[in-house]
Design a protein around this nucleic acid. Structure first.
Lengths: 222, 222
DNA sequence: ATTTATCTTCATGAATTTTTCATTTTAAAG
DNA sequence: CTTTAAAATGAAAAATTCATGAAGATAAAT
């Protein structure tokens, strides 16, 4: 396990490094934003984890993280910062960070969070899901088809999102229903069908983007 | 997306529910620990996310979470608590929670954290069964023969799937029938035979892929 | 209160799948 | 080689499943 620490405060960086090394991790420290950004982009498989300070010389942590995610970097990122307000946290997480820790923090907690993130299956799925010509931003709810915005209603979005989170999997109506609706009994209702119909109407694709699997449900392929 | 909120403070629970529903999530609230524990264990696919209070009547959040994880529940869990000390956080995360939020919190932050966790892809490992030149993917329901896609109807797929789950074993018509059909009386019907026929027609193999065991049933070999 | 947008229900017809059934073919045993 | 039961088959009938338009219901906005 190799961890990259991006932190310009030399002393803090050194402390973290020491502590992590005692725990058996290999640790590199980079103090400058752009250098760190490049390092990860160029060699995507070198590190298993990144601890990223928010305020950095060169380029700030949030921008770096956004850029990584846009470029398909899936390494878990824990954002570190002195700013502890809620809005800051939100920005950090929405930038694609997997977790957020405010300074000052106990080393024990940093460790626990690293453990928690490393425990989960690799690959955080991107903010933006794509299938064929469709892409949806799960945070902003923006949907585009062939780079043109498509306006979807709430239910339509939820149905589409669920299918896009389950690409290449046949999804039953029950599944769709129970994930997008509150009450559990989908039988005797064809609302899902109707929403599928409306989705198809709004996203008219010659390559049928939403396939019907007769007798089972629907499927989208990647 | 459906979220389960386990929180005994009725007012807080209601607030969270309202907020999340406005964001388009379906939300259920359970106020008692054991009930929540059971609910998830029994119906593992119903919810996409759990917000779990640490202090609950019945059974505390940490124990519940540990129990879920021991039983293979992989739903993302965000632990909620009034206790904000570092040690508590560590316990929560080590219990298998994916994130941790101390009360009081801003709704905005809760939302950002939910987004961050939901971004993770579900990892359903598709089950791929292979026999000779045929392979079927039980998740995508894709069937290929000599690497070419074969389109099967529901019953055909179910019959084939059952046989491929029982390679090298002779499967009786009764067995096939009761696995692919709801009611049990296969007598006086040769539907299974017909589906076998159609399967063989769609998958024409010189090496007879589906063997007839006269007087008993059918068999596929690996 | 009224308008507007969204969601759900319902009815219909078309397409596909499933089942039935009569007939032919096959395989084992005498 | 014949007999006989089991299995395969083709085709028609029956049943199911979907897509869809439109109307009714609900919720949100003005």
């Amino acid at each position: 396990m190799k961890i990259l620490v991006v932190e310009d405060n030399t002393k803090l960086a050194e402390n973290i490094k020491q502590g992590l090394m005692q725990e058996g991790y290999a640790v590199d420290v980079i103090e400058e934003g752009l250098a760190a950004e490049r390092r990860i982009l160029i060699n995507r498989d070198e590190y298993d984890f990144v601890i990223l300070d928010r305020m950095l010389p060169g380029k700030d942590g949030v921008s770096i993280c956004v850029n990584w995610r846009e470029n398909g970097v899936v390494i878990p990122v824990l954002m570190l910062t002195a700013l502890g307000t809620t809005d800051d946290k939100v920005v950090g997480l929405d930038a694609g960070a997997d977790d957020y820790l405010a300074k000052p923090f106990a080393f024990k907690e940093l460790l626990a969070r690293i453990h928690a993130l490393l425990r989960r299956p690799k690959q955080t799925s991107p903010l933006i899901l794509t299938s064929g010509n469709i892409s949806i931003n799960t945070t902003s709810r923006l949907v585009t088809y062939k780079d043109k915005p498509v306006s979807l209603t709430l239910k339509e979005f939820m149905v589409l999102e669920y299918m896009m989170r389950n690409l290449n999997k046949v999804v039953t109506r029950d599944e769709l229903y129970s994930h997008a609706w509150d009450f559990a009994d989908s039988s005797f209702s064809n609302t899902v069908d109707v929403h599928i119909k409306n989705l198809r109407k709004k996203i008219k694709d010659n390559a049928k983007i939403i396939q019907t699997i007769r007798g089972v449900g629907y499927k989208m392929e990647s």
